[in-house]
Design a protein around this nucleic acid. Structure first.
Length: 672
RNA sequence: GGGCGCGUAGCUCAAUUGGAUAGAGCACGGGAUUUCUAAUCCCGGGGUUGCAGGUUCGAUCCCUGCCGCGCCUACCA
């Protein structure tokens, strides 16, 4: 609603200025929000117009104010020094529209094709840790944002089941703990098999470090896995599938689901790379090196090394002095090794050609995992089932992958572009975010020995290889225990099962909110104190606001949704106007105004791939509501008309906050 | 060395992408409702936005140069 008004306002002002100054080239109209509601609801700075119109900003503001005429939904324009035009929304108009839940979604947005979001993508060789949680929560929330905006989305979780990481754990089973296949099969059915692998993986890394000779085992194992059809490959398959199931279970605890799990083994065995390789060679994207450091390899120009004119001149100089080789090699990215095997970037290029339907090949599909809601998650297979949904061939791709991979991601985009697929390259977004690290204090609490240098750092990087980090399930367990003890003490009247269910909702709310409140490019320095907090800017704070709102309607024996739907019939516009105008009611108006911003915020989150704005929106609504709740007794309000109006306010805020939390993947408990 | 990013209150982070008096949470100190349950609310101290220049009506944001920190820069994935 807010977004609709904003857009219409911008258009009207632009039209007005064009009409008045037909000969002049004008800058775009920017609409902002004034620092305080008392100033108005929109602010238009007119400084950029001063020069082209050769007039003072205040004068321009005044001429718009007095000449533009009336606009539906806008009550008043005010000129404010040093050069703003402040706009006041017709409060009763917006309130009625909000109460009716009318939302204007421009038609063109509902069009365009399917979107593919890839997230999670954990190597299936160890338990998920908090870094993976950030990825999955960001990805899942982004999926929910897109779906809220009416887009069709497929969720993929890429499984690298044939790489060194899986090979390392296989080495652990065969060389360190020396388990037989039947023994591994039994272990793989353990409820937390991924924890077992976590420890084993760390031991294998130490074992390699002890004696470089031990690395021989890794390379033999890796080759056997890649070749397939042998004992080692079968063991790897057992381990990777079992760990993958554990990851799906862990994410399911946070209400995160997937549609399709493409695996590297199929990319390999269905020869996706061969198809891609042919196209890359004939398009001249890859070049063969005849000598130098990368002799015998097929290489690509490293992304981000496009030569500017200055650099080209510099390179010419280097070439004259015989240094050409050195500089060029630095810009090379090896795609195919001299032994003929392809690296992961090459596989990624093939995979992304498939995503956009540019490869001319497809996976086989098999059912793999069924969620309690009957939703089916599919996995890639060499020979799939006859009937299956179609994945791939999408219009847009978002890859949720941490910032350390940005160079590799750019290389893939560059390859698509050089193949002539500019359309695809333009619709490929690397949803980049920073890692989760541990504060030195947190690392110490977990019993890790830190160097003196590390102790002085703001944070220490987690490492699966070293077994250094906080496991996802451990954190979820701790959050549930902590929430459960709070619920136990507050609600002894409830049954244990119900208290447990509430505790789970609170734990998920706390965790998901925690992962979303930081902007993407901020490194999260993880600390149990912050993550386990249920007060202040947290998920439970926002959940609690909704619980309070529900409490009012429960006590009044009213259905909040029904009340919101019918409120427009019960309260005439004049009454809205009466209760929303005047200085004293700015505080209540702010609730209505903020409530109208949900689709505006959703849009902003999608455009900037930044879900943190959603968390801020939820917090703002909750904060405004809690203050309002404290200040205005509602059920005891003597003026019946005012009471209806206050109830309407609660109903609308409740609806928008519940929606916002739902997009974040957070549900609201019955009581807290 | 090169590339990307960061530096804001004691701590953890925001700042609608160049706008009005730089805001929240935590921590600390003080206070509030026999009410729709206090996982709440109100008040308070706290800032030379790393440093120095520049661009303009206006800079936390853009440019240049320093200082400090992180990540990437493998014929690993």
């Amino acid at each position: 609603m807010y977004r609709y008004l904003e857009q219409r306002l911008a258009v009207r002002i632009m039209e007005f200025l064009r009409q008045r100054y037909p000969e002049t080239a004008l800058p775009a109209v920017v609409i902002e929000q004034p620092p305080k509601v008392a100033l108005g609801d929109f602010a238009i700075p007119l400084f950029p117009f001063a020069k082209p119109l050769r007039s003072a900003p205040l004068k321009i503001a005044e001429s718009i104010r007095s000449e533009i005429g009336s606009i539906e939904g806008i009550a008043e324009f005010r000129v404010a020094p040093p050069g703003y035009l402040n706009v006041r929304i017709d409060r009763a108009w917006l309130a009625l529209a909000q109460a009716l839940a009318r939302d204007h979604v421009p038609k063109e947005e509902a069009t365009s094709g399917k979107i593919l979001v890839e997230h999670t993508s954990i190597n299936p060789n160890k338990a998920a840790h908090i870094g993976h949680l950030r990825n999955a929560v960001l990805g899942d929330t982004f999926v929910r944002l897109l779906r809220y905006a009416g887009r069709e989305v497929d969720v993929q979780n890429y499984i690298d089941n044939t790489g060194v990481q899986v090979a390392d754990v296989v080495v652990g089973f065969t060389h360190l703990v020396k388990k037989s296949r039947p023994e591994i099969d039994v272990l793989a059915r353990e409820p937390r098999f991924d924890y077992y692998c976590w420890d084993l993986y760390a031991r294998v890394s130490q074992w390699y470090a002890q004696d470089k000779q031990n690395l021989q085992a890794r390379s033999e194992t890796l080759h056997a896995i890649e070749a397939g059809n042998n004992e080692t490959a079968a063991v790897a398959e057992t381990i990777a599938s079992a760990v993958l199931r554990r990851h799906l279970e862990t994410m399911e605890r946070l209400d995160i689901e997937y549609d399709f799990l493409p695996r590297e083994s199929e990319i390999l065995h269905l020869h996706f790379w061969d198809a891609a390789f042919t196209k890359l060679k004939s398009a001249g994207v890859l070049t063969y090196e005849n000598d130098g450091k990368n002799k015998g390899c097929w290489v690509m120009r490293r992304a981000g090394t496009g030569k500017s004119e200055g650099q080209q001149a510099e390179q010419a100089l280097v070439q004259e002095s015989g240094g050409e080789r050195v500089l060029e090699e630095e810009d090379q990215k090896v795609i195919v090794r001299s032994n003929g095997t392809v690296g992961y970037v090459g596989k990624d290029i093939a995979y992304h050609m498939w995503k956009f339907g540019l490869l001319g090949q497809d996976f086989g599909y098999r059912k793999f995992y069924r969620y309690p809601n009957q939703h089916e998650c599919w996995i890639s297979a060499i020979e799939g089932e006859k009937h299956h949904p179609h994945f791939g061939g999408v219009a847009e791709v978002y890859n949720v992958i941490d910032a350390r991979q940005s160079e590799a991601q750019s290389t893939v985009i560059e390859a698509l572009r050089e193949l002539g697929h500019n359309e695809a390259a333009d619709h490929y977004t690397h949803f980049s975010y920073e890692m989760v690290a541990l504060t030195p204090r947190c690392a110490a609490e977990l019993g890790y020995a830190l160097s003196e240098e590390d102790k002085t750092r703001p944070y220490v990087e987690v490492s699966g290889r070293k077994g250094f980090g906080v496991k996802a399930d451990d954190l979820i367990d701790q959050l549930i225990v902590s929430a459960k003890s709070e619920v136990d003490s507050r609600h002894p009247e409830l049954g244990d099962e119900e208290r447990r269910s509430i505790a789970r909702q609170i734990a998920v709310g706390a965790l998901r909110y925690f992962m979303l409140k930081y902007t993407k490019q901020s490194v999260i320095a993880f600390d149990f104190k912050d993550a386990l907090s249920f007060e202040g800017e947290t998920g439970p704070y926002a959940q609690y606001a909704v619980v309070r709102a529900n409490g009012i309607f429960n006590k009044a024996a009213l259905d909040a949704d029904e009340f919101a739907r019918n409120v427009a019939n019960k309260i005439p516009a004049e009454e809205f106007s009466q209760f929303l105008n005047g200085e004293a009611t700015d505080e209540i108006w702010e609730l209505w105004l903020s409530s109208s911003k949900t689709s505006y915020v959703v849009n902003q989150c999608i455009a900037t791939t930044e879900p943190a704005y959603l968390a801020k929106h939820a917090f703002q609504l909750a904060q405004l509501f809690n203050a309002f709740y404290h200040r205005h007794p509602i059920l005891s309000e003597p003026n019946e008309k005012r009471k209806q109006f206050l109830l309407a306010t609660v109903a609308v805020v409740r609806r928008e906050l519940t929606r916002t939390l739902a997009v974040m993947g957070i549900t609201v408990p019955p009581v807290m």
